[in-house]
Every structure is written in structure tokens, then in C-alpha cells.
Amino acid sequence: MPGTPLHQILADHADAVRAAWLGAAADELRGRTSRGELEREQSDIFAALLDGLGQGAATVDDPAFDQLRGILSDVSSARARLGFTPRETAVAVLALKEGLYVLDAAVRDDVTPLFRLVDDLGLFTFEAFAAARESIIAEQAEQLLELSTPVVKLWDGVVAVPLVGTLDSARTQVVMEKLLNTLVETGSEHAIIDITGVPAVDTQVAQHLLKTVVAARLMGAECTISGIRPQIAQTIVALGIEFGDIRTRASLADALVDALRSMGRNDAAVSA
């Protein structure tokens, strides 16, 4: 009926619209999620859409659609974590068009503005999915960073940080935090930073190492850098990098022996 509010038209034809919408979404997802889950998801979206339209909302950014945007953000985030594709996520909204197509021609003309709104909601869902994926990737990168920078206790009073891979600013910060926390927790007097697994040492890497040593010294711990291979030593000399009074050793074992001796342990204890 001409002049009938959009939310009323949708409410009057809710069963037909939702059935076609659900069928289209289920066909697109091909079993990636259960039909029951789709129905629950659809019910929440449909209710929030009706509520917003009933309050006079016409665009995605309208305050009356706050709840709807929140639901779509949650759906996007959940699907991003479950490994869905952007297309599989956006179909949660875009498949609503199939529900609108089943309406009689006369009624369909009255809901023309909804087609544009559905497109905008689909775009919002896609953007929310992209933001969620970026957040997940950042979390995973941080977790990998944590796992790739362990601080281990080698002996009473001696901890070590075996570094593997490139040392950049972000990783240096993680190394510093974990090393300092471990020094406090264990009361260690000596820290060994082992760079056997670092493929190359340039000026920037050297600066990062020096920052870590200075941070440890401020906590009262002596530091040794181990894992200085011949190629690394030649590069350090060629670049004119100065480690000053920082102790360096060729291997982690040599650094541990040196640390124990500097702590006053006797030869028998060191040999053991």
C-alpha cells in the first residue's frame, strides 16, 4: 500500500522475506554454519533493522541503527575469527535482497530505499570484518613475538634470552620487558643475550642490543652478549660498531661459564 512505512511493510511480510533471505544465505555458505545459527543471527539483525526503521532511520550512520551496527560488528568479528571469507560474512546482510525480491511488484516499489540501505549495511559489515581481521593478525603477531623471545633461567642467578631472527624496535621492547620482569622475579645477577640465531648484525641491531643491555644494567644485572660468530665479528668490525665495556663471548656455554665465575662460583660448580 503506497505510503506504508518501510518497517511496517517488512513486518507484514516478515515470514516470506526471512525465508527467502535464510535460503539465500544458507546456499551461499554451503554448510559453513548451521541453519539454526543463521536463523538466530538473522532474527537479531531483522529485529534491529525493524527497530531502527521504526525510529525513522534512513542511513547506516543513523543513531537509531546503533544496535544494528553493533550486531553486524559482532557477526563480522566472530566470522573473522572462524576463518570465514569477506564474501561469506557480508552475505549475512546482502542476502536480505533476495527476501525483498519475493515481494509483489507493487510492494517492492515501496521498499526501493531498502535496497540501497542493504548495500550500505553490507559495506559496513565488510569494513567491520576487515577491521576484525587486522586486529586478529596484530594479536597473532604479538603472540608469536612473545613466543619467539623466551627468557630462560640457566642457573641460580643467571638468565638468558636466546634471540632468533631479526631484532627490530618492537621486538626489542618485548625483550626488554620480559628480561626485566624475569630479573625481578628470579633475583638474577647476570643476563646473557644470545644472538646465535640472529642472521646478521648491523648498526640498528647493535643499537637495539645496547638498549637491552643498558636496561638490564639499570636493574643491577651484568650482561654478556654471546653467539658472536666469525662472520658477525667481521661485520661488527667493518661497521665500526663499539660494544664498549659489554662482555661478549663466542657461545652461550662460554657466557654461562663466565657468568658463574664472575659471581664467585668455584671451578667445581662451574664444571658441574
Rank of each mutant, 00 (worst) to 15 (best):
residue 232 I to C: 02
residue 59 T to K: 13
residue 7 H to S: 15
residue 249 R to M: 15
residue 31 G to C: 06
residue 129 F to E: 05
residue 32 R to I: 07
residue 5 P to I: 13
residue 86 P to M: 02
residue 136 I to E: 01
residue 187 G to R: 09
residue 19 A to W: 10
residue 238 A to I: 06
residue 256 L to R: 06
residue 239 L to H: 11
residue 11 A to C: 08
residue 47 A to D: 15
residue 32 R to W: 05
residue 111 V to S: 11
residue 205 V to C: 03
residue 103 L to G: 10
residue 46 F to Q: 12
residue 202 D to Y: 08
residue 90 A to I: 12
residue 135 S to A: 11
residue 121 L to S: 06
residue 39 E to L: 11
residue 186 T to N: 01
residue 188 S to F: 04
residue 154 L to C: 00
residue 269 A to Y: 15
residue 2 P to E: 10
residue 231 Q to V: 09
residue 175 V to K: 03
residue 219 M to H: 13
residue 39 E to T: 14
residue 109 D to T: 13
residue 192 I to M: 00
residue 183 L to K: 00
residue 108 R to F: 08
residue 51 D to F: 04
residue 31 G to W: 10
residue 193 I to V: 15
residue 22 L to T: 12
residue 258 D to L: 14
residue 18 R to W: 04
residue 244 G to D: 11
residue 249 R to K: 15
residue 148 S to H: 05
residue 80 A to D: 02
residue 192 I to H: 00
residue 126 F to H: 10
residue 113 P to G: 08
residue 111 V to I: 15
residue 247 R to A: 14
residue 33 T to W: 01
residue 251 S to N: 05
residue 7 H to T: 04
residue 270 V to P: 06
residue 216 A to Y: 01
residue 228 I to E: 03
residue 260 L to E: 03
residue 78 A to W: 07
residue 37 E to T: 14
residue 73 S to V: 09
residue 186 T to S: 09
residue 155 W to G: 03
residue 137 I to E: 15
residue 247 R to F: 07
residue 134 E to F: 04
residue 153 K to Q: 15
residue 193 I to H: 04
residue 207 Q to S: 12
residue 233 A to L: 10
residue 80 A to L: 03
residue 81 R to C: 04
residue 86 P to I: 00
residue 53 L to A: 06
residue 246 I to Q: 07
residue 227 G to Q: 11
